[in-house]
């Protein structure tokens, strides 16, 4: 973990209620896809934990959905605004388990961390398939970005307005070596039921985001874990629903 000042370099609407923000600053404490940053916002007591979509040494990209007052405030930030970030939080995905043909499954606001993961795995020579699940066509983002990385992309929408009608599990057919997933809990559970092994990234309301307050603890088969620090990524074999 590091506490760093970042400057907003862009902040744009890319899909329904969904914003992409680029931040410039020292991001070298981020080491794995699936980690998150915790952003201090003026006027709000708690920081906002947001997963990292992509990063370079001096740049972080996040994609966030406006769901409350904090994210609504974020959507109004202009380039040039300085923000205080706790950087490099969480365990992130273990990329060594991917095998040759990993499947990456993201639902809604769970799609962004799959981008950094896909980038990493493709650079590593893996044949990556990405399933992005949304409610409706207006929410879809990053279909082309994943394709540009070289991933095979499948889109599902609950209303069938684009891609496969249904849920991510309706597009999971194929021969995959491993599964990485991030999304709402019902989606994670459905994916869990359809795979033999994988890693799942969970969400929880957090106090600190770095393991001090015990606000986000969950039970696992190997004891209590803090989603912010021991997670957010849990191995399939340790999850207790």
């Amino acid at each position: 973990m590091e506490k760093r000042e970042f400057e907003v370099s862009s902040n744009e609407l890319i899909a329904s209620n969904t914003w992409k923000m680029n931040l410039l600053g020292d991001a070298r404490s981020i080491t794995r896809p699936g980690q998150f940053v915790n952003i201090e916002l003026p006027g709000f007591f708690l920081r906002r934990p947001i997963s990292v979509c992509a990063w370079r040494d001096w740049e972080v990209t996040i994609i966030y959905k406006v769901v409350g007052q904090g994210t609504s405030y974020m959507s109004r930030l202009e380039p040039g605004v300085k923000l205080d970030l706790l950087c490099g939080l969480g365990n992130g995905y273990d990329v060594t388990k991917a095998g040759e043909r990993p499947l990456l499954v993201g639902g809604g606001a769970g799609v962004p961390p799959m981008y950094a993961l896909a980038e990493w795995l493709i650079r590593d020579g893996r044949q990556v398939t990405v399933i992005e699940g949304f409610n409706t066509a207006g929410e879809v983002f990053y279909e082309r970005e994943f394709a540009d990385l070289g991933a095979s992309v499948r889109i599902t929408t609950a209303d069938g307005s684009v891609g496969t009608r249904g849920f991510v599990t309706d597009a999971m057919d194929g021969d995959f070596t491993y599964v990485y997933a991030c999304g709402p809990e019902p989606m994670l559970r459905a994916v869990y039921d359809r795979c033999a092994d994988g890693q799942f990234s969970f969400e929880e309301r957090m106090g600190c985001g770095f393991g001090a307050c015990m606000g986000c603890t969950c039970e696992t088969k190997y004891g209590y874990k803090r989603i912010c620090r021991d997670g957010p990524v849990l191995e399939r074999g340790e999850i207790v629903w």
Binding site: F45, G70, E204, R205, M206, M214, G215, C216, T217, Y224
Partner: peptide
């Protein structure tokens, strides 16, 4: 183990915890 989650809520100038 403590209490079930959510255990944290934001407030004006502070927070609630029910760890």
């Amino acid at each position: 183990f403590g209490n079930p989650t959510p255990r944290i809520a934001e407030c004006p100038s502070g927070m609630l915890n029910a760890v």
